[in-house]
Design a protein around this nucleic acid. Structure first.
Lengths: 311, 311
DNA sequence: GTGAAAGCGCTAACAG
DNA sequence: CTGTTAGCGCTTTCAC
């Protein structure tokens, strides 16, 4: 998918009115290609800033995209009206293809885009879509089971979980993994040991506090994201609980720097950079062939447990 | 600057090949306008995610821009090559105008854009530019003086400061304000009471720790951003220092939620939302008139001290 | 080889 | 008031 770039413009700084270099609109009109991809984030801003997973994805995808001589623009859809604006933008042929990040249940964007024949790839397994779409995901369910099995093997008796939002596949899958491992071990999944978080640090702290109140006897907690786990560690600290002797904590890797700031935190590692590159590659592949013929597929990257606790 | 939007496309979900709605390239070609503005962020990703000031600006600007029936795309320039890519993108007429956020010293983007006749507005006072550019800023210097005077009036004896990066106007101005107030009170600005931070929470914590080591006798600190102030509070906590009785802390508002998470933190408030709206409005005004005739100007919003300490 | 011309899909201006 | 046409700036093709 190698495309000659427009000749570089020499900015004539001396004059007031001057050429804008090769006009992109005319170029696009005749070539039928914009050499630009959109990175759509369907999330409120307060959630976006502070979500290291998104940060990793944005960085990784835009790097990979630029390496292929394509431009990359970020489109934020924080609310319903923005959503429509993004939709218009994309369907008007402003971009050749789209990477969708942070998809929520009931988001109709993927179906709209695929229906419009716009090459699209998703980050994370989608739910309830009319048409198949290419996606890239980590094995969240497997990772959740990995973490839970580890806690069981440690001999932990009352293993709690702070889940992600249960309307997002990433939230559901990690919880399913927890359930898998519990059932495997012949243990019941107790409602009072499960709290639904929102992937924010504050949410993690709040849910941890609630769990401690409800179940003071818990001796382990699997938290569905490192961001929330950091909050949970603070809450445990405040409650005077010792980690990991008193309560073991396992997070789920979304903070590349977590081992630095939280040396005591064991996490389930997902290959964030590889996932970002895979997203870009799948999209670029679709841009190469003709849109209709591309067969949607998906990649699921394995996860691994990285022990950092000095227990 | 009211412009009729292209008629909404009805996505024909039934077929495989279908119209993409009104083609934007042709539209742009003939109208000479894209109805799109670029929001350029010149900052590394790890800095961007986690900087609430940027979050506020992105949200505020994009909202205001969309209200004017314009699209808004975010362009990230995290490194040198990205920088060039963004430059190409913008000078090729992909956008009608540009808002530049988080400018650093020596960034040639503003001069390039104005030289190319592209309507441009900056967030924050620029340094060392060849040509005048419209910008929007808060009165950082005044705010810094406000905070420092307050600490002096409280009877604090050894008032330290954690500055922002001293290669950024926002860093310099707040420090200048501190110096202003100190000189006003006939006090020397002592090197050992000043530490240069980087506007991150971790940086704030690190610099606070260094200051405490160097100057255990300090009884107040003015921190150039709330984000850093939160880090500083943690460091003080760890060192067993009591806030605000033992050590008074004043931050500089970049965290809209700070009063919620840090009820003890007094800060210098800057009107983030108004600043974002002003940025968008100035740009839109430039888009209306012809680019050459627009006279660059600037707005500087006043800051105010908001006491939240329960001291 | 080099140079001229057709035409991409829209909008605006103009003629009927 | 409605229908037709010129032409935006580039690329590609076709003729020379």
């Amino acid at each position: 998918v190698k495309s000659a770039l427009p000749r570089p413009m020499v900015a004539d700084v001396g004059h007031v009115e001057l050429d804008h270099g090769p006009d992109n609109a005319a170029r696009t009109l005749v070539k039928g290609r914009t050499d630009t991809v959109g990175l759509v984030i369907s999330e409120a801003h307060e959630r976006v800033f502070g979500d290291p997973f998104l940060a990793s994805m944005v960085r990784g995808v835009s790097r990979a995209v630029m390496r292929a001589d394509l431009q990359c623009v970020v489109l934020w859809a924080q609310g319903r009206s923005d959503h429509d604006a993004v939709e218009r933008f994309v369907t008007q042929g402003h971009v050749d293809g789209v990477v969708l990040l942070s998809l929520h249940e009931g988001d109709r964007m993927p179906d709209l885009l695929t229906a419009a024949g716009i090459p699209t790839v998703l980050s994370g397994r989608p739910m309830g879509l009319q048409r198949p779409v290419t996606y890239v995901d980590a094995d969240s369910r497997g990772g959740g089971a990995l973490a839970t099995r580890h806690l069981i093997a440690q001999g932990r008796r009352r293993i709690a979980m702070i889940t992600g939002p249960l309307e997002m596949p990433a939230g559901i899958d990690r919880f399913d993994g927890y359930c898998d491992a519990m059932r495997e071990a012949g243990r019941p999944v107790e409602r009072s040991l499960v709290a639904e978080g929102d992937f924010t640090e504050r949410g993690g702290a709040d849910q941890m506090a609630r769990l401690l109140e409800r179940e003071p006897g818990l001796d382990a907690v699997f938290v569905a994201s490192d961001t929330m786990a950091i909050g949970a560690l603070h809450a445990l600290d405040r409650a005077g609980r010792r980690v990991p002797d008193d309560v073991a904590v396992i997070g789920f890797d979304d903070v590349p720097m977590a081992e630095f700031t939280q040396p005591a935190l064991t996490t389930v590692r997902q290959p964030l950079d590889e996932m970002a590159v895979a997203l870009a590659e799948r999209l670029i592949a679709q841009l190469g062939g003709d849109a209709g013929a591309a067969v949607p597929d998906h990649v699921v990257f394995p996860t691994e447990l990285v022990e950092r606790a000095s227990a």
